[in-house]
Simulated scan of single mutants.
Amino acid sequence: MSAHHHHADSDVRAPDHAAEAAEVRRFWGGLGLPGLVDVHTHFMPERVLDKVWAYFDALGPLTGGLEWPIGYRHQEEERRAVLERFGVRAFTSMLYPHKPGMARWLNGWAADFARRTPACLHTATLYPEPGVEEYVREAVAAGARVFKAHVQVGAYDPADELLQPVWGLLAEAGVPVVVHCGSGPAPGEHTGPGPIARVLARHPRLPLIVAHLGMPEYGEFLDLAERYPRVHLDTTMAFTDFSEGFMPFPRRDLPRLAALGDRVLLGSDFPNIPYPYLHQLHALERLDLGAPWLRAVCHDNAAQLFDL
């Protein structure tokens, strides 16, 4: 990070998000919850995050060419403090490689981040490459509680033979894996329900968390959750004005979402969101699926899954 970045973040103009934090706390307090659990937040080495932000700024192809202003572009310490002020009592450090030879290094960084961040659920990642089984086993032994796999950015088939032993290992260990496997915001060669359905056919007990509710193939990913009792869905960016504008959730599927109330988990994509964090919460609330559903989604389901 350049000195300029450090200065920009520490000067008086850095927002403290205090007004928003009060609203976020009012939201979960009103539901009678002890806080929120967010299974989809990004923390990664600064130089990797800088590249991600530069990609969004340049409207890279995977953004679907949409304007995507980063809502919480702060130093890492400030981003952790924001989540704490919001009352997010547990969150993840979703990180992922886009090429071979990166995952083990990212896992080392993430283990250290979790050590110095009590609220973070120790996160790890993977990539189809020789040695993947070894470093995934090491990460699980080191206490990783959740994995992240990004089929779109990594441009690999989740059913790749190199990953079969890994899915088996995670199913056996009962460690959930958040997979970005839907085709939103822009399709990749291996996105969509097909490839991940092949993984589940071979590993039906894999605790899978489908990122973004599988946007835009919402219905097909609901099918998978209905078929496999360990498949969960995270709400990341779903139902927000931003996403509804170009990848709306089909209203006819809302009853199915309500029925799967024990398998839907709050995710936000913080800090890489083009709207306030509070908007994701309001977007879920206005679905009108009831307070018990909201309580489960915003806290209880993840608390149970991660034994909090």
Rank of each mutant, 00 (worst) to 15 (best):
A296W: 02
A197T: 13
Q152D: 06
Q280I: 07
A114E: 06
L224M: 05
P100K: 08
N272A: 14
D160K: 01
E134G: 09
V140C: 07
V140S: 06
H4Q: 11
L305E: 04
L33V: 13
E129K: 01
D288T: 01
V140D: 11
H150L: 00
D57L: 10
R104N: 04
S93F: 07
G188V: 06
D112C: 11
V210E: 09
A142M: 05
V48L: 13
P176A: 09
L126F: 08
S10Y: 12
R85A: 13
V132R: 05
A211M: 09
T123R: 04
F56K: 00
A18T: 09
D57Q: 04
R256K: 13
D16Y: 01
Q304I: 09
P292L: 02
L254R: 07
E46Y: 11
V39A: 03
E244M: 14
F242A: 08
A139D: 03
C120L: 12
V136E: 03
A186W: 02
E76Y: 01
S243I: 14
A21W: 05
H17I: 10
A159V: 08
L83C: 06
V231T: 08
A197G: 11
T41V: 14
G60K: 01
D11F: 14
A119Q: 15
L83P: 02
F221L: 05
G35F: 07
G182V: 08
V37Y: 05
Y218C: 02
M1R: 13
D160L: 01
V48W: 12
A142Y: 00
L170G: 00
K148Q: 10
H282Q: 15
M215S: 14
E133A: 15
R80K: 02
A110P: 02
R13L: 15
H299A: 08
V210R: 00
R198N: 10
Q304C: 05
A142I: 09
W293Q: 02
R263L: 10
G60C: 03
R25N: 11
I196K: 02
C298F: 07
R47V: 08
Y228L: 02
D307F: 04
R115K: 13
L106P: 04
M247G: 03
P216T: 01
W53I: 14
Y96V: 06
Q304D: 13
Q304V: 13
V132E: 03
R104I: 05
H282A: 15
H7V: 14
T235H: 07
R145C: 12
L294V: 09
F27R: 08
D269F: 07
L265C: 06
G29T: 15
R205V: 00
T63V: 03
S268I: 07
L163T: 00
V264C: 06
F242Y: 15
